[in-house]
């Protein structure tokens, strides 16, 4: 009986092995069909195993993969007809147009943006990607196309225009884990913070008078003050200015140079101002255009 079992086992092992191999091979060939530049991309692997497609390989393949948000209105979102829209998407379409290739949008999660570039799943990330020193060690950022800073919103009848107006008994509302929380704890430890885990909790608390002001990314507070009556952004810019820029896989010089030249060239037609007016003006209003837009990669 043992003898029979061993024979049966060998047979099964062969069957399982064949199925696995066929599965893996069909997977590879499927991936290759979908992405003709694959073989070349693999050769371009750098020593630490990152994979990217050079400018010529992207042009040769006829399509570019751009990672964007699909649920961050108004930067990258999908409209009711299933079409990608937003400030980042508008720029992405232009990049593809000027490269003369089709654009393939890849819906990205905030936490996966670095990984997606490092594994060559996308050629460019255009997903509201804030430039930080830590990230710059992992990916290559091109020239910026937008500013971000912190902002503070408060009730219109008691507008706070300077942090010194906040008394010792007053509290400022922040969302846990955001740049606003980190900034205020480091630079203004004397201010009492009330922390909430989600946007909606913070919003409810703020509207019920739990704090004299609410600190968050300035884009968020501006959008809030524009949609809810009775609130004003007293401090539209707080702390260090950060910028938002496209990112490519570390070492992808040809693509990076092309994007930088593209951003500089687009300044002639004031492209990002047009982008703002098409996509962001409904949320932020005309007043913040100069504050938010970076044209030609030049920070004023």
């Amino acid at each position: 009986m043992y003898m029979k079992n061993t024979t049966l086992f060998k047979l099964l092992a062969v069957v399982v092995a064949v199925i696995m191999v066929v599965g893996i091979m069909s997977g590879c060939s499927k991936a290759t069909d979908a992405d003709k530049g694959n073989a070349d991309a693999a050769e371009a692997s750098t020593t630490d195993g990152t994979i990217y497609r050079t400018l010529d390989e992207i042009k040769g393949s006829g399509s570019i993969k751009i990672g964007v948000f699909s649920d961050k209105n108004p930067f990258g979102y999908v409209d009711e007809n299933g079409k990608y829209q937003g400030y980042d998407v508008y720029f992405a379409r232009r990049i593809a147009e000027d490269l003369g290739v089709e654009v393939e949008f890849v819906s990205t999660e905030a936490a996966n943006r670095v990984e997606a570039l490092q594994t060559g799943k996308v050629d460019i990330i255009l997903a509201n990607f804030t430039v930080t020193e830590e990230r710059a060690q992992q990916v290559d950022f091109a020239l910026p196309y937008m500013n971000v800073a912190l902002g503070v919103v408060s009730p219109s009848d008691k507008v706070i225009t300077e942090l010194s107006q906040i008394g010792t008994d007053d509290a400022v509302i922040v969302i846990s884990g955001t740049t606003a929380e980190i900034y205020l704890e480091e630079n203004n430890p004397e201010i009492t913070l009330k922390k909430y885990d989600t946007y909606s909790d913070a919003k409810t608390a703020f509207e019920n008078g739990q704090g004299v002001a609410w600190a968050n990314d300035n884009t968020e507070v501006i959008a809030y003050a524009n949609t809810v009556d009775g609130y004003t952004v007293g401090i539209p810019k707080l702390g260090s200015d950060d910028t938002i820029a496209p990112a490519v896989t570390k070492g992808n010089e040809t693509l990076l140079t092309w994007i930088n030249d593209e951003i500089k060239a687009l300044a002639d037609e004031q492209f990002f101002h047009k982008d703002y007016e098409e996509t962001l003006v409904d949320t932020y209003g005309k007043a913040y255009e100069e504050e938010l837009v970076v044209e030609g990669g030049v920070i004023k």
Partner: peptide
């Protein structure tokens, strides 16, 4: 499977295929 395979052995799976695996 999705990111690791690309990093280690340069295999580029389609995400759906990685999910099935």
């Amino acid at each position: 499977v999705y990111y690791g395979s690309a990093r280690l052995i340069g295999l580029k799976f389609e995400p759906e295929f990685a999910a099935v695996i």
